[in-house]
Amino acid sequence: MLSPAPELTPEIAALLRRAMFPDPVRIALALEAYRTHSDRRIFVWDVDGRPVCAAGVQLAGREAQVLHIGTRPEQAGRGHGRNLLHAVAAQLGLTRLTAETDDDAVGFYRRSGFEVAEVAGRGGQRRYLCTLNLGETGNPGG
């Protein structure tokens, strides 16, 4: 079940950290941005009242970019991430949801209905722009 995160608890921060570059300074800055930037929001997917997946997004009108998404390792592969992103898009009435990712996560976005295009890499790694076009209805396919 989808729920907006009322606050950035240690449990939710741990989920988001799973999608962050493992640099303590960069992690601290990214988490602080969720507390201080009005265009950033965190959403959580709960199972039996326990957060199993969290996503941080940056809003721009009726579009949003997924900045981070992390799932508990023991809950991976069960559709929680996909369900979370689609529920966020529907709740916010988004027309488009995007994410930039690498080889490790591009398959997740493809399986979740995103169109994928390779973009300029960084640090010798391939990068991908993943786009979920939702149309005016907030649902995939318009």
Rank of each mutant, 00 (worst) to 15 (best):
D39W: 07
R40M: 10
I42F: 00
I42S: 01
I42T: 00
F43S: 11
V44S: 02
V44P: 01
V44F: 01
W45D: 01
W45I: 01
W45A: 04
V47S: 08
V47K: 08
D48H: 12
D48V: 13
G49T: 06
R50L: 12
R50F: 09
R50Q: 11
P51S: 12
A55G: 08
G56E: 05
Q58T: 09
L59M: 03
A60F: 03
A60D: 05
A60S: 04
G61I: 00
G61R: 00
R62N: 04
E63F: 09
E63P: 13
E63I: 07
E63Y: 07
A64G: 12
A64T: 14
Q65K: 15
V66Q: 00
L67T: 14
I69A: 13
I69D: 11
T71L: 06
R72H: 15
P73G: 11
P73I: 08
Q75R: 14
A76F: 01
G77C: 09
G77Q: 07
R78M: 03
R78S: 01
G79I: 00
G81V: 02
R82W: 02
R82K: 10
R82A: 00
R82Y: 02
R82I: 03
N83R: 15
N83S: 15
L84D: 02
L85P: 07
L85V: 02
A87K: 07
A87F: 09
V88Q: 02
A89K: 09
A90M: 06
L92N: 10
G93Y: 06
T95E: 12
T95W: 12
R96S: 14
T98S: 12
T98F: 10
A99F: 04
E100K: 07
D102A: 14
D102W: 10
D103I: 06
D103N: 15
D104E: 15
V106H: 06
V106P: 08
V106R: 05
G107D: 00
G107T: 03
G107Q: 00
F108G: 15
Y109S: 08
Y109R: 05
Y109I: 06
R110M: 03
R110E: 05
R111N: 14
R111Q: 12
S112Q: 01
G113A: 11
F114D: 04
F114V: 05
V116N: 03
A117C: 14
A117Q: 15
E118K: 11
E118A: 15
E118Q: 14
A120N: 15
A120E: 12
R122L: 10
G124Q: 08
G124C: 14
G124K: 13
R126Q: 06
R126E: 07
R126A: 08
R127N: 01
Y128P: 08
L129D: 02
T131M: 09
L132G: 07
L132E: 02
L132D: 06
L132M: 09
L134R: 12
G135F: 08
G135A: 05
G135V: 08
E136Q: 05
E136F: 10
T137C: 12
